[in-house]
Simulated scan of single mutants.
Amino acid sequence: MKFAAVQMRSGMHPGANMDALEALVGEAAERGAHYVLTPEVTTVFAENAAQLREVAGPHEGDPYLARAAALAKTHGIHLHIGSQAVALADGRFANRSVLFGPDGSELAHYDKIHLFDAQISGLNAYRESETYAGGDTAVTAKIGDLTLGMAICYDMRFPALFNALAKAGAEMISVPAAFTVPTGQAHWHVLLRARAIETGSWVIAAAQGGTHENGRATYGHSLIIDPWGRIVAEMDDDAPGVILAEIDSEAVREARQRIPVLANERAFAVPE
């Protein structure tokens, strides 16, 4: 099967973002993709919660998810919206990843578990939890005979999630993201390769890239990594585009047989 990652430069206008997405998904489908992953905040890359409230509604009846479902059906592919904000009853949002099947049906969705709350020296505190509610459940789904595990951006810094997904049968793990440039330069490749190596899994990471309408700059460099940690496809810049790779579960079996980390793991006590 051919898997594709779409790199975008989403702005604050959902209609324009969906138009850009349709063109990129069409390109991926023409190149033979069976599965297409889009980045984090595909639908709208808003600057703050007030802007999100103007465009983000509940999951049910969401017009942008409906448009994505129709796009999956038109091309007969699995279309995985890396994430979009979904309004919740408490006034916050879920950062939600949604997978559609080739018939346009919704197969699974995942809410980003790990939220970035930090006080950075010299800067104002950044509290993602003020805008978003974190999820509490790891999610897998079937893509043909292959099992997909779902993560989003900051999740990649928490290997326990990837370990749990691999133990639940995931052979590929999706990581849609909107990484900043400094952290991307320092950590993007090494973290994603590590997650692939640790779990013996394929990793597919679709990124936002470039300078956005909200003033943010993201790193780009979308990646597809094999279970041995080799980068098999990469966008070498931050421009919108598509990467593809042939994916097979045999590579997973071979990697896990050669380095049986999941089988060799043991429980241990921690000193108090």
Rank of each mutant, 00 (worst) to 15 (best):
I77T: 07
W188L: 09
R127A: 12
L192C: 08
G76F: 09
E254Q: 11
L71C: 07
G26V: 01
E30M: 07
S201I: 07
L88T: 06
A33Y: 06
A160K: 14
D238G: 10
D145Y: 01
Q84L: 15
L37I: 02
A69F: 09
L88H: 03
G61R: 13
R9H: 10
E198G: 13
T38H: 05
K167H: 15
V41H: 14
T183M: 11
L161W: 01
I143K: 01
M172Y: 06
T131R: 01
A255C: 11
H114Y: 12
Q84S: 13
N95C: 12
I243C: 06
Y110S: 02
E234L: 06
R230G: 05
G26L: 02
H187A: 14
E54R: 15
A16Q: 11
H59E: 12
E47D: 12
A141N: 03
T218F: 14
P240I: 07
A233S: 14
P176T: 03
A177C: 10
M150T: 01
H114I: 10
D90M: 05
A125D: 15
L99K: 04
V86A: 10
R230M: 04
D19H: 12
L24A: 15
A118D: 07
R193C: 11
H212I: 04
R96L: 10
A263R: 13
L161I: 14
L79E: 02
H212G: 06
G15P: 08
E22V: 00
G11A: 06
E171K: 12
P260G: 05
A20P: 01
P14H: 07
H221S: 04
A164N: 06
T183P: 02
A166P: 05
A69L: 09
R258K: 14
P159F: 08
G82Q: 04
H13N: 13
A267W: 15
N163K: 13
G122C: 00
G210P: 06
L79K: 03
P63L: 12
W202H: 07
G82F: 08
L123D: 02
M12V: 14
G184I: 03
A5K: 00
G215D: 03
G209V: 09
M172W: 04
A46V: 07
L161P: 00
L244E: 13
S201N: 15
A85Y: 04
E47F: 08
I225D: 08
F268Y: 12
L123W: 05
P260L: 12
P39F: 03
A68T: 02
M1A: 11
E106P: 00
